[in-house]
Computed example of a mutant assay.
Amino acid sequence: MKKWTLYSIAILTLLTLTSCEAVGTIFKAGMWWGIFLVCVIVVILLVIFSKGKSS
Results as ranks from 00 to 15, higher is better:
1 M>P: 01
1 M>D: 08
2 K>V: 09
2 K>R: 09
2 K>G: 06
2 K>D: 10
2 K>C: 01
4 W>Y: 11
5 T>K: 11
6 L>Q: 10
7 Y>W: 12
8 S>P: 00
9 I>W: 05
9 I>M: 13
9 I>F: 11
9 I>P: 00
10 A>G: 04
12 L>E: 05
12 L>M: 11
12 L>F: 13
13 T>Q: 03
13 T>N: 03
13 T>L: 15
16 T>P: 00
16 T>G: 00
17 L>S: 03
19 S>D: 07
19 S>M: 09
19 S>F: 10
19 S>G: 01
20 C>A: 02
21 E>W: 07
22 A>Y: 06
23 V>K: 05
24 G>T: 07
25 T>D: 03
25 T>Y: 05
26 I>C: 02
26 I>T: 08
28 K>H: 07
28 K>A: 15
29 A>D: 07
30 G>D: 02
30 G>W: 01
32 W>V: 01
33 W>D: 07
34 G>M: 01
34 G>A: 04
35 I>Y: 02
35 I>M: 12
35 I>W: 02
38 V>H: 01
39 C>M: 14
40 V>W: 03
40 V>N: 02
41 I>N: 03
42 V>C: 03
43 V>S: 05
43 V>W: 03
44 I>S: 02
46 L>N: 04
46 L>A: 09
47 V>F: 09
48 I>P: 00
49 F>Y: 10
50 S>R: 14
51 K>P: 00
51 K>V: 11
51 K>S: 08
51 K>R: 14
52 G>E: 12
52 G>W: 10
52 G>I: 14
53 K>L: 13
54 S>N: 10
54 S>L: 13
55 S>G: 04
55 S>M: 06
55 S>C: 01
